[in-house]
Each structure stands twice: as C-alpha cells, then as structure tokens.
C-alpha cells in the first residue's frame, strides 16, 4: 500500500507529509517531520505530554491519526514563542521554576495556553482541573499552577 499524502498547517507553516494510515499525528510530528518538541509519555491519552492544538481545540496527538490532519491547523509548543520572544506562559514557567526534568512541560504549556484562550482569569481550581490530563511527576504541580496563574495575570494586564 502506498503512503497517504497529507497537507496541513503546523505552527503557522503549511506542511505536507507522507504517512501510513495507522500512524498517529504524534508519530508523524516526531518521526517524520522531526518536530520532537511534542513528547510521548504513554501513547494512550493518559499523560498529556503530546498535547497539541487542532483547529484551536486541545487534543492528544497520540489519539489522532495523522491522516485526520488533512486540511487542519495544528499548533505545537514549538510555535508558542515569537522568534526569541517567549510566550508569557513560557516565561513564567521559567521564573516560577515550574519544570524540573521538563519532559511534561511542552504538554503543560500547550494545555495552559488553551485554557487561557478560553478563560483569561481562571481560579486555582479551574487550572488544576483543566490540567488534570497532564501528568507531572517531578513538581507536585504546585509551581506549575502558580506559573499559569501568574502568566494569566500578566496577560490580562497586557490586554487591558
């Protein structure tokens, strides 16, 4: 069987790739397009490390076939910064020491960005429940939650 040709937009760039029908979007991002910023922690949708935005909706890229990306718009952690200007979430993750090993960080950043796009002023509880699908084993979540709340506050200030 020949490979499938898929045309899509990833991190603002129009991209084409060839894939097998059974390959997930995560497989293609990492192993075909070599965009390894998006991580695999479980492959079964339980850890959130592979979080990406699909047409502005937060999804696990391990739970989506690459073939389903045809004509869709995908955003990953690699597109969050504008050049060398970090997104406020990225900046606050650094300032609050919200990462230790850092392997869950890309997923958390993408998920948190999706939250703040919908709810610019979330409560601690809302942040915790929104991010419940992102596992972190290093931090106990404390500093991650603080970083998201701090970034939200800064972004609200910037918008005002």
């Amino acid at each position: 069987m020949s490979k499938r040709h898929v045309t899509t937009t990833i991190d603002g760039e129009s991209r084409e790739f060839l894939c097998e029908d059974e390959q997930t979007l995560l497989d293609v991002l990492r192993d075909v397009l070599m965009k390894t910023g998006t991580k695999e922690g479980c492959g079964t949708g339980d850890c959130g490390a592979c979080s990406v935005m699909l047409d502005s909706r937060l999804v696990c890229s391990c739970l989506m076939l690459a073939a389903e990306a045809e004509g869709r718009v995908i955003e990953t952690v690699e597109g969050m910064a504008e050049g060398d200007r970090l997104h406020p979430l990225q900046q606050h993750f650094l300032e609050e020491a919200a990462l230790q090993c850092g392997v869950c960080t890309p997923g958390f950043l993408v998920a948190a960005q999706a939250l703040l796009a919908r709810n610019p002023d979330p409560s601690e509880r809302e942040v915790r429940f929104w991010l419940a699908g992102n596992l972190c084993r290093c931090t106990g979540y404390d500093k991650i939650i603080r970083a998201v709340l701090a970034a939200a506050a800064e972004m609200r200030g910037a918008d005002a």
């Binding site: 990492r30 965009k35 390894t36 910023g37 998006t38 991580k39 695999e40 990953t76 952690v77 690699e78 969050m80 910064a81 970090l86 990225q90 993750f93 650094l94 300032e95 020491a97 990462l99 850092g102 392997v103 960080t105 890309p106 950043l109």
Partner: peptide, 19 residues
C-alpha cells in the same frame, strides 16, 4: 535565577532520550 537550560526546555528544543 532562571536555569541555564530553561529556554530550550520551554520551547521544545531540548532533546530527550527519544529525540
């Protein structure tokens, strides 16, 4: 201070075992 390897870890550029 901000950790020296911080920026590459929040931008997805840091390379882990499977990368």
């Amino acid at each position: 201070p901000i950790r020296p390897d911080g920026v590459e870890k929040v931008t997805g550029r840091a390379r882990y075992g499977a990368d």
